[in-house]
Simulated scan of single mutants.
Amino acid sequence: MDRRSDELGRGRRGDPRTLCRRVSCGVHRLCGVGASAFALPSWHQYGRVRDTGAGCLGLNGSDRRGGCAGVIKVVVLDFDGVLVESADVKTEAFAQLFSKHHAHHDAIRHYHLRHAGISRHVKIRHIVTAILGEPADERRFEDLAERFRVLVEKQVAAAPVVRGAREFLSAAQGRYHLYVASGTPEPELRRLTGRHGLSSSFVEVYGSPTTKPTLLRRIAAAEAVPVQGMVMVGDGESDRDAADETGVPFVARVTGPGPLASCRWQVRDLSELQAAIDQIDAA
């Protein structure tokens, strides 16, 4: 283990300040040290990160306004819809890919949006076999995946970066270790990250076929930090689910009504992300 990883990991796992349990999309948190634990409600005002400001017990038993000491060292970001405004490009690409199946377009869109952060290969297989009811054909799946890549890669490369993304990535250097975890195939993801001029901001850029829960665990192990020392930023239910499965605090990018509107930590764009991380650190 190198010196940096040793410094990141030392003293964290046994630190009672990490006893604050963060719930990604809940309305309560449990804070405390040892047997002294209590539930605290929180409320969200749409478009603005907000918390009650109630404190956690300090290490000497005193109340600490602003919560337990900050532990966030690693920030993991989804790509489409979080770093780049490309989520709609891929939604429409699935409709184009199955353009002859108009009767199934609503079901295809719904399935894609519910599983926005997973591999396109998994989605294509499900659409063909479960939605269209057609037999599995590996060669056809590969052909459809390549056609999808052709449909989306140039459009994603031309899509604008999310407001506040460049500023956050610049300000975060030296403060956090940054990673990308996306459902986009990894070679394509690396090309797109490079074409947007973002590659140098990240320790690693990870894509499919590795799943997001596996990626989050891999990053935590590589950085020698507990999952409470990380934040996952996503715009899809699969991002939230991966964070919930691994215990990583989750920040949802929410731009309108939808299933992530109940998540505790929300931002409209990345200009609000640092404030959200600060709130998690203080929770």
Score class of each variant (00 low, 15 high):
residue 197 G to S: 01
residue 32 G to V: 09
residue 136 A to R: 14
residue 43 W to P: 00
residue 139 R to F: 02
residue 172 A to L: 06
residue 20 C to D: 10
residue 213 P to T: 06
residue 126 H to M: 05
residue 167 E to S: 12
residue 156 V to E: 06
residue 169 L to E: 06
residue 225 V to W: 09
residue 113 L to S: 09
residue 50 R to I: 05
residue 94 F to H: 03
residue 57 L to Y: 14
residue 107 A to V: 04
residue 16 P to K: 09
residue 248 V to K: 03
residue 166 R to Y: 09
residue 115 H to E: 08
residue 150 V to R: 14
residue 169 L to Y: 03
residue 228 Q to C: 11
residue 10 R to T: 11
residue 67 G to P: 07
residue 79 F to E: 01
residue 138 E to I: 01
residue 64 R to S: 08
residue 82 V to K: 02
residue 267 V to T: 01
residue 276 A to L: 04
residue 242 A to T: 06
residue 104 H to A: 15
residue 89 V to M: 02
residue 233 V to K: 05
residue 254 V to F: 02
residue 220 A to E: 06
residue 148 F to K: 04
residue 274 Q to G: 01
residue 143 D to A: 15
residue 70 G to A: 15
residue 52 T to W: 09
residue 146 E to T: 11
residue 130 A to S: 15
residue 168 F to M: 01
residue 36 S to P: 00
residue 126 H to W: 12
residue 145 A to C: 12
residue 139 R to E: 15
residue 46 Y to W: 09
residue 105 H to S: 04
residue 92 E to G: 14
residue 243 A to H: 07
residue 33 V to M: 11
residue 113 L to Q: 14
residue 266 Q to W: 07
residue 220 A to Y: 08
residue 198 L to S: 02
residue 273 L to M: 11
residue 237 E to W: 00
residue 102 H to E: 11
residue 34 G to H: 07
residue 191 R to Q: 04
residue 1 M to C: 09
residue 275 A to V: 09
residue 134 E to T: 00
residue 181 A to K: 04
residue 146 E to Y: 06
residue 249 P to S: 07
residue 107 A to R: 15
residue 264 R to E: 11
residue 178 L to P: 03
residue 12 R to G: 00
residue 190 R to G: 00
residue 279 Q to R: 15
residue 250 F to C: 06
residue 188 E to V: 13
residue 146 E to H: 12
residue 198 L to R: 04
residue 240 R to G: 01
residue 112 H to K: 07
residue 59 L to T: 11
residue 79 F to V: 01
residue 75 V to I: 14
residue 275 A to D: 14
residue 277 I to G: 04
residue 134 E to Q: 14
residue 17 R to I: 02
residue 13 R to P: 00
residue 37 A to E: 15
residue 167 E to G: 06
residue 273 L to F: 10
residue 223 E to M: 12
residue 28 H to I: 07
residue 179 Y to R: 05
residue 249 P to M: 08
residue 237 E to D: 07
residue 172 A to W: 04
residue 106 D to R: 14
residue 222 A to N: 12
residue 163 R to V: 12
residue 213 P to G: 06
residue 117 G to V: 01
residue 52 T to E: 05
residue 179 Y to L: 05
residue 142 E to I: 02
residue 217 R to L: 14
residue 135 P to I: 08
residue 17 R to Y: 02
residue 168 F to N: 01
residue 217 R to K: 15
